[in-house]
Simulated scan of single mutants.
Amino acid sequence: MSRRVVCLRHGQTLWNAEHRFQGHSDIPLDETGVAQAARAASLLASLRPDMIVSSDLQRALTTASALGRVTGLDVAVDKDLRERGGGEWEGLTRDEIFAGWPREYAAWNAPGGEEVADVAERVSASIRRWAAELDSDGLLVIASHGAAIRLGVSRLLGLPPELWSALGGLGNCSWSVLEEGRKGWRLLEHNAGTLPEPIQSDDSPEVTQD
């Protein structure tokens, strides 16, 4: 028996559709995002999760709550599952970011924003903390954000930072599945739930574009 964690990215928001950096800005799901959350909930409920934990930002919490209604589970909230803070870039499109900060854009390092290593550490620590509350065969669903999930999963898998971009971005209401084995965590699925399509996310261009 092994613990498993499903890391679910939130549904679409208007800022996703407009290619705006969201970060810690508390943007709601749009109509498409609500429908995506309902679809994901119907699929993930069949896995019979034991626990649901969400970022405190409403786009993730609304996504998690859709699953909670189907399964009858309460949704715990953890601020450590928030998206990477975007500093001065929050609310701006990628074109606006490139025009104003070409050097920082190349490194995807927002002025006043969070360092990727800090995000990776807080998200992976949150996943470990909540997974430790599961039984040996339990299933946890984490509702979070594109960059936060990718960075947290990379850190949890023990990948060196120079390889973190090897994991591609997550589509809205797509998920990754982790399993805890005798030698640590391993990735069973990544970006499941959708066919390949452009990724609209706060994550870096190198992992969200062809």
Rank of each mutant, 00 (worst) to 15 (best):
L73I: 04
E180W: 01
G33T: 03
R9C: 01
V116A: 07
T62R: 15
V207L: 13
W15P: 08
S174G: 14
L178G: 02
W89C: 01
G181E: 15
G86I: 07
E180R: 00
V75C: 12
W185E: 04
E206A: 13
T93K: 00
R20H: 03
G23A: 14
A132C: 14
R4A: 07
L44T: 05
A64R: 00
L156C: 03
R82Y: 10
S25D: 15
G113L: 02
T63V: 08
L134R: 09
L139G: 05
D80N: 14
A41D: 06
Q22D: 14
S2G: 04
A99V: 00
E96A: 02
A99C: 03
V207C: 11
V53T: 01
L73P: 03
A106V: 15
D95T: 00
D202C: 01
I97Q: 00
R150C: 06
V34L: 04
L178S: 02
S65F: 02
A17E: 06
G152F: 10
V153N: 02
S55Q: 10
E133I: 12
G184P: 09
E88A: 10
L14E: 14
R84A: 09
L157C: 11
D50Q: 10
R129W: 11
L61C: 06
R122P: 03
R3V: 08
A38C: 14
A131N: 04
R4M: 13
G158Q: 13
D30R: 11
E115M: 14
V70M: 15
R3C: 02
S124G: 11
R155F: 00
I52Q: 01
P198K: 08
L8I: 09
L67G: 04
M51H: 07
T93W: 01
E162Q: 08
I199T: 06
R129V: 12
A106Q: 15
D203M: 02
A147E: 08
A107C: 08
A64L: 07
V116W: 07
L44V: 12
D30S: 11
A132F: 10
E18Y: 06
D50K: 05
Q200M: 13
E121N: 05
P196A: 13
A45F: 04
D135F: 11
A120Q: 04
I199Q: 03
I97N: 01
Q22A: 12
R150K: 15
N191K: 08
H24V: 05
A117L: 11
L170W: 08
L92N: 01
T194P: 10
P102L: 07
A110S: 01
V70S: 12
R122E: 05
S176T: 14
V153T: 12
V77P: 06
A17L: 07
A37C: 14
D30Y: 03
W101V: 04
T93S: 03
V75T: 14
D80F: 09
P198R: 07
G91I: 00
V34A: 06
V5Y: 07
S201I: 00
A125N: 08
M1R: 15
A132G: 15
H10W: 12
P161F: 01
G112V: 09
F98P: 11
E197W: 14
P205R: 02
